[in-house]
């Protein structure tokens, strides 16, 4: 297993619960939507924290690149957290247009972010962190969430 394999798989898991939340809210099923959204927001936060507290610092100390790609990814995490907060407000207000529009925006933001990570940053991390135990610590965090 490569260092970033658990994060790669976790992207797909987040996609699935995102789709559940979006579908429920667009059908007006706010109870199921709130449950799926809470699960999605929790999983996404765990994912971000696993990267920001474990993967990125390890990559930065291994390569000395502290203001490069990881900084860009942290910035995009901030943007996605803001979008999540907007979705939560729309959910509380039962504003299906607001929820759907922000969900759509978050989806595209999240997908292009994931592709950058999967195609570029994760391979860089795998080559810089091969032979370390970072992958296992990340997997444990994700499983525990």
């Amino acid at each position: 297993m490569s260092t970033t394999q658990p994060l790669f798989q976790h992207h797909k898991h987040c996609d699935e619960i995102f789709a559940d939340a979006e579908e429920a809210c667009s059908n007006g099923d706010w109870t199921a939507g709130a449950k799926a959204f809470a699960s999605f927001a929790g999983q996404l936060e765990t994912h971000f924290l696993s990267e920001e507290e474990v993967l990125f610092p390890a990559f930065e100390s291994a390569t000395g690149m502290s203001s490069g790609p990881t900084e860009v990814m942290r910035g995009e995490h901030r943007q996605m957290r803001d979008l999540l907060a907007q979705m939560k407000l729309a959910l509380v207000d039962r504003d299906s247009d607001g929820f759907g529009g922000t969900a759509e925006t978050l989806l595209i933001m999240m997908q292009q972010h994931n592709m950058k990570e999967e195609n570029i940053l994760y391979p860089m991390c795998d080559s810089a962190l091969g032979g370390t135990d970072i992958g296992n610590s990340i997997a444990q965090r994700l499983v525990a969430s």
Binding site: Q79, L83, G100, G101, E104, I108
Partner: peptide, 9 residues
């Protein structure tokens, strides 16, 4: 802030 930016829809 992102909350001030209208969403895609």
């Amino acid at each position: 802030p992102i909350s001030a930016v209208p969403n895609m829809k």
